[in-house]
């Protein structure tokens, strides 16, 4: 099945995020983010660095740094409590069990003084998936074999620094998938990897979530990677979701000028007469100090006075856009 084929009926939500905001002191870094993920659904979250993608992931995991405060609702299937109001103890029983996460840099996410097999076994034992040291060790070895690590018996006895970047990332994936999570979050899981290793890793993530029917939230700044892996895409900029839609529709008929800009900049074969690539003007403002109103208006070719107010969401939650002049609406004519 192709990655871009849309599912007709979204299954009941595994994760439902509603009105999520993350604030630091005086301003919002993530604002009013809402989306849901069904079982087995693979959803991509894309945007440049500083757009709030990782903070959204950390808020779901309950791993936000202390100086940031989150508001809104995050609900996980079959969990009574809202994750944002749950205690740290309640959240920690979910992490590694029903919520799995793969970080960009596996070297810092793994304990450098612990053998990787023991780290995988620990995740299994903490959540009581298996009892007894030997059973956990056996299961850990199976998990390492499942992420196609050669000679898992030997790899299990290694320390993280003795493995290559790609091998470490596989260990991270084995840990994240160990207890068959309802939701797997991958935050730029392949950005630090070589392309051939990335290809293998993407395949493993794809197979891993398919085998467990887990929902996948895949965060990346690389549109092509997300398009390859995900059924649906959420485009984030300035802490807000500016466009959402099924992969194929979103990429063939992008509506938000930011999505169009990202796509144009990603395509190295589309150049103008002088051989130059299309770009998005300017850069992401520092410290999350985006303009009020439409967050993209200071870089947008269609920006005008109307954009001083936040355009609001048009369309469905999983298929819509937040723009005063979306492409294909007729309103963008004569602009840009």
């Amino acid at each position: 099945m192709g990655a871009v084929s849309a599912r007709p009926d979204p299954p009941p939500a595994v994760l439902d995020v509603a009105g999520l905001s993350v604030r630091t002191g005086d301003h919002a870094l993530v604002e009013d983010v809402s989306f849901h993920l069904g079982a087995g659904e693979r959803v991509g979250l894309i945007g440049e660095s500083g757009s709030g993608k990782s903070l959204t992931a950390l808020a779901i995991m309950g791993l936000l740094p202390d100086e940031l405060s989150a508001s809104g609702h995050i609900r996980l299937r079959e969990v009574e409590r809202d994750l944002l109001s749950a205690s740290e103890t309640e959240r920690s029983t979910l992490r590694g069990d029903r919520l799995g996460m793969v970080f960009q840099e596996p070297m810092t996410a793994l304990n450098p003084l612990m053998r990787v097999g023991a780290q995988v076994a620990e995740v299994l034992r903490i959540h009581g998936a298996v009892s007894g040291r030997e059973a956990a060790t056996d299961r850990a070895r199976d998990l390492l074999a499942a992420v196609e690590l050669p000679d898992p018996e030997r790899i299990a006895r290694r320390y993280p620094h003795q493995l290559s970047g790609g091998q470490r990332q596989r260990v991270m994936l084995a840990m994240a998938l160990a207890n068959g999570p309802d939701l797997l979050i991958c935050d730029e899981p392949t950005t630090a990897l070589d392309v051939t290793v990335q290809a293998q890793m993407l395949k493993l993530i794809d197979d891993g979530v398919a085998a467990r029917d887990s929902a996948l939230l895949f965060i990346s700044h690389d549109l092509a990677v997300v398009a390859t892996v995900c059924d649906r895409i959420l485009v984030m900029y300035g802490g807000r979701i500016v466009e959402a839609g099924p992969t194929r529709a979103l990429l063939t008929r992008p509506r938000h000028p930011y999505t169009e800009g990202l796509m144009a900049a990603s395509d190295l074969e589309a150049v103008d007469a002088a051989g130059r690539l299309p770009t998005i003007a300017g850069s992401v403002p520092p410290d999350g100090r985006f303009p009020d109103g439409c967050v993209f208006r200071n870089r947008c070719p269609r920006g005008d006075d109307a954009c001083q107010a936040w355009p609001g969401w048009t369309g469905e939650q999983h298929d819509g856009v937040a723009c005063w002049y979306p492409s294909g609406s007729g309103r963008e004519a004569g602009r840009g």
């Binding site: 990655a3 871009v4 092509a224 990677v225 390859t228 796509m263």
Partner: peptide, 15 residues
């Protein structure tokens, strides 16, 4: 191994 938008739209999956 390099993922591209064109191939993704043509139905390429991670495999």
């Amino acid at each position: 191994a390099v993922p591209t938008l064109r191939r993704a739209l043509a139905g390429a999956d991670p495999a």
